[in-house]
């Protein structure tokens, strides 16, 4: 038994030094390669699902399910008032396609990191990071709902859809990023 286990370890150590492994699985893609791939899969998404890629709309449903699990109700909210939204809420997250796509992003990144043998749990280092995560998260969540999307749904998908809203989002987001950078350097570094 021990011998077998040892052989297995040796096999994966050999993989680790294999040239193709290093080239294709270990090393990062270039930014341009990733950009081309993202664009291709964005087009695939529109062709196959009838809608462009979106991420943050799903988070509103996650919030609603959590809120309902702790006893709240969102039935009276305008945002969830449409029959479609009600049906999605009633069906639950296990039946929600967007939920599985978002969880898929997490799992895809997790698997890619492990396959590259580069996984490490990164603990929170300081109180500043906690404050930054809370404030930043809240601002992204609220902003994405008011602007009808995030960097994916409103920006990437908006611009790809030849919508003026995508460009307006881009300009406003850029200035937000400048202000955010100033705040980051001043308070969170």
């Amino acid at each position: 038994m021990e011998n077998k286990a040892e052989k297995k370890v040796k096999f994966f150590d050999r993989v680790k030094n294999n040239d193709y492994y290093i080239k294709w699985i270990k090393s990062p893609f270039t930014y341009v390669a990733a950009a081309v791939l993202l664009a291709i899969f964005q087009i695939v998404t529109l062709a196959a699902t009838g809608n462009p890629w979106g991420v943050s709309g799903v988070f509103a449903y996650w919030g609603a399910w959590i809120y309902e699990a702790v006893g709240g109700t969102v039935d009276k909210w305008f945002y969830f008032a449409s029959p479609g939204a009600q049906a999605t809420l009633d069906a639950g997250f296990m039946e929600h396609a967007g939920t599985w796509r978002n969880i898929g992003i997490i799992f895809g990144a997790l698997a890619a990191t492990f396959l590259a043998s580069g996984f490490k749990i990164k603990k929170i280092k300081s109180k500043k990071q906690i404050v930054a995560a809370i404030i930043g998260g809240l601002m992204m969540g609220y902003g994405a709902r008011i602007a009808a999307g995030c960097n994916i749904g409103a920006l990437f998908s908006g611009i790809a859809s030849l919508s003026l809203s995508g460009w307006v989002f881009a300009v406003a987001m850029f200035f937000g990023a400048v202000v955010g950078s100033k705040l980051l350097v001043k308070f969170f570094m």
């Binding site: 990164k122 603990k123 929170i124 280092k125 990071q129 950078s181 980051l184 350097v185 570094m189």
Partner: peptide, 12 residues
């Protein structure tokens, strides 16, 4: 810069 997120390591 262990535990620091982007862009902190680069700026530092």
């Amino acid at each position: 810069c262990l535990g620091e997120a982007c862009p902190v390591p680069l700026v530092k």
